[in-house]
Amino acid sequence: MNIIEIKDLSFSYQDEIDALSNVTLSVKKGEWVSILGHNGSGKSTLSKLIIGLLKADSGEIKVDGVILNEESVHDIRRKIGIVFQNPDNQFVGVTVEDDIAFGMENLCFEQSDIIDKIKEYAEKVSMSEYLKKEPHALSGGQKQRVAIAGILAMKTDIIIFDEATSMLDPKGRESIMNYIKEINKAGVTVITITHDMKEAVLSDRIIILKEGRVIACGDTNDILNDKETLNSSNLELLLPLKLQYLLDEANLSNDKVKDILWQLSLNK
């Protein structure tokens, strides 16, 4: 069952060329999909359209069977959480516990329920010891974990990670990727928006955007096999793939090496 269905979606910022043109795609319930593209490919615009922060010029977005419009936007936002790129721009609370509570307060949860849930979800992201801390005492990775706790507490069906790891150090990045895996295993539909192919190969499916258009969409294995599309995508290719292409061109590849490079590409 598709939890998100997008048909012929187009959007342009004032007077400029289309940021997105005729985008059609779908996301299945419980799936982990990566939207991959370079800066300016339209991937963040797409995420803002899905949560109704921007209004499409034409086309249709359906979330869980409901068409996104002015009446439905509030209900739809209850189903989708989003973690943005810059940890400092989304920390709204004075302390960690305030920040986790923010989303629940907006959804009018009972006060006693909120207090229990803060504890429960802070523990899930290993931030229990930091509940009274202010944001300046946290690293970027810790702030992103607090954002995740706040969203998990709202029990949304879908979580979008919009380049949520691109400003973190290696340790922070790894911890966030591990939480994403866990969240998806627990049944939440995950959309990761990234320009990093190393992250994208971890997901079930990859959608590649270039200049506002979908240029590829398929299972991760199939996408990695699609040399032509990858070469035209302006993305930085994984090194094992680059090496495979060099060997192919020189007619030097054999099955053993090919298999090894394939496993390395998939981060296994």
Binding site: L239, K242, L243, L246, L247, A250, L252, N254, V257, I260
Partner: peptide, 25 residues
Amino acid sequence: DKLDVNFDRQPHTIQDLFELVKEVI
């Protein structure tokens, strides 16, 4: 590790690595 070889130098670019791999396959 997987090819069970030891390259005699650390490649700096993917082209360097290609040259090294060429010699062992």
